[in-house]
Design a protein around this nucleic acid. Structure first.
Lengths: 125, 125
DNA sequence: TTAATGCTAAAGTATTTACTTGACTATCAT
DNA sequence: ATGATAGTCAAGTAAATACTTTAGCATTAA
């Protein structure tokens, strides 16, 4: 809603996701929420910082769409947004596939020249 | 080598990896290197910044062990370190598995109480 | 040997980050 | 209604970030 324009840009979204996860406190929040929903207070309780600081971390995670939250009464309940983790995994998967493709082509070249490959082969053509 | 103490701490390593990828320039470098090795100059050529800036990005990626590099003569050749991408994928996978487990338990509870589940079931016990 | 190339190292700067504290606003319990 | 609870907002600060420019140092080519 607030973030439509922001998230239209895939690169910008990736940046905000990685940035959000580049902090131990925020990763701890994500890890906690992957076990089930929790309130701000529950998230803050084990943390060595003020509740206001935790709120700011939660806002950042929400902007990155790694979590969502809803207020019931005076309690804000947060839960994880798995689709965004999936998107990250996809990005990593693409990188690995490209690397494997490059790796295979390298192995082929070494093969064609009938040299001893220094790297193990990965695919039979 | 320089980083033994640094990387002994898994959390610290995760932080440095996510932080390294939280920058479009550095992601572009990783994407380029997933297609095959390249020199600093080749990496810098399409970038809208000084070569010195690119060197600093490369150093950060190397500290995070996302890439490695070697100097041959005056040319430094960089290549991707897939094992570290794997590690990241593992972290994400763990989060998803925990979430799925929680999700399944939630579905079971809804089932046991014979209410209409608001969320689709995911596993048959 | 000289000059160009490819990179490195250091210092400086504007911006962003991760907090803090304190004042405030709803909501819930008594 | 009163007070305690759960969270929000704003302003301030020390440290970290993403660059820049300048100077330098090996390596290679002429």
């Amino acid at each position: 809603m607030i973030l439509l324009k922001h998230m239209l840009n895939h690169q910008t979204h990736l940046t905000s996701i990685f940035h959000a996860l580049a902090d131990p406190t925020r990763r701890a929040i994500v890890e906690r929420l992957s076990l089930g929903p929790a309130s701000i207070g529950e998230l803050a309780e084990p943390m060595p910082m003020s509740l206001a600081a935790v709120v700011q971390h939660v806002q950042l995670l929400e902007q990155a769409q790694l979590i969502t939250s809803q207020k019931h009464g005076r309690v804000r309940t947060c839960k994880i947004e798995v689709a965004t983790l999936d998107m990250l995994e996809n990005w990593l998967g693409q990188r690995r596939r490209q690397w494997e493709h490059m790796f295979d082509r390298l192995a082929e070249v070494l093969d064609d020249h009938e040299q001893k490959p220094k790297l193990p082969k990965r695919k039979k053509p």
